[in-house]
Design a protein around this nucleic acid. Structure first.
Length: 274
DNA sequence: CAAGATTCCTGGTGGC
DNA sequence: TGCCACCAGGAATCTT
């Protein structure tokens, strides 16, 4: 499920519920995670306390006292949950950081497209995973001008461009479709033909939809630690994603599903222009 | 170098 | 109900 808003929601929940807590024990499934990830042991975290929870793109950086950082990516199906004392383990739990009171921070990922790696804190930024990333969409560096510049000379279509992490990070398949719709831009538009005005709108609407989703995610922080382990992040009301055949809320046109770069895209032919 | 295709996995869904 | 094909929110690694 995780795109940037879900990762940010997770970051805030961990910060709220786990910050300052000391790790009493570590348990790993030993399963191989994402191709290209290093298999590392989190055992050295035993005795360390969670000192900070940072996010870069869709990565979470959990800084511990003692100088280690746990780098986590949720992939397509990963979750980090704050388990209460006595909560039963679940299938596909891959890393469990048990706290002294019996509670735990647990990384679970059925498809194993996610990863976790332990790094010395000063060197985690130099991880191959974090190199070559573009600006954060909610930072001042992500502007219409920057997006316009990044689109020059590109033969790729607009929507896959928005999902290119060297252009801007954190925009996944759902919010890429939503941002194009909000900006009234056809996802098939050749990036090189994006106007400066279109780039301004697209940058603005990308920020807006991500912010709205983070706000919505924030309302589910309570669920994050519910005793029944309620999961499933709040889903903001989507305008086009997964709405093929339904009416566009803006113009009444019929929303279409197409495939771009092997990924589903949704758009309204009535109000999104090339 | 850019861009498209394939690949890593499990689980949910819909058709028969 | 069971079986099976197909699809899924990511990103590394190939091929073209």
């Amino acid at each position: 499920m995780p795109e940037l808003p879900e990762v940010e929601t997770t970051r805030r929940a961990i910060e709220r519920f786990c910050l300052g807590r000391a790790v009493a024990g570590v348990r790993a499934s030993g399963a191989r995670m994402r191709v290209g990830s290093r298999r590392t042991s989190a055992a050295p975290l035993t005795g360390a306390a969670l000192a900070a929870v940072r996010r870069r793109a869709k990565f979470l950086l959990l800084d511990f006292t003692g100088g280690s950082t746990l780098l986590v990516h949720l992939g397509m199906t990963g979750t980090l949950r704050c388990a209460a004392p006595g909560d039963a383990p679940r299938t596909h739990d891959h890393l469990t950081l048990r706290f002294e009171d019996g509670g735990a921070l647990v990384f679970n990922d059925p498809r194993r497209f996610g990863l976790y790696e332990l790094w010395p804190t000063p060197r985690v930024e130099a991880s191959p995973h974090l190199g070559g990333l573009g600006p954060e969409p909610l930072s001042a560096a992500f502007t219409g001008a920057a997006l316009h510049a990044a689109s020059r000379g590109r033969r790729i279509a607009l929507k896959p461009l928005l999902m290119d992490p060297s252009v801007v990070v954190g925009v996944g398949n759902i919010y890429a479709s939503e941002a194009c719709h909000r900006a009234r831009l056809d996802p098939r538009l050749a990036a090189a033909r994006l106007s400066r005005d279109g780039a301004d709108r697209l940058a603005r609407e990308t920020r807006a939809v991500l912010r709205a989703a983070i706000r919505a995610g924030g309302t589910t922080l309570r669920d994050f630690t519910a005793p029944d382990g309620a999961r499933g992040y709040f889903r903001i009301k989507l305008s086009v994603y997964d709405r093929a055949g339904l009416a566009c809320g803006r113009c009444g046109g019929t929303i279409r599903r197409i495939v771009q770069a092997q990924r589903a895209s949704f758009y309204c032919p009535g109000c999104q222009r090339r």
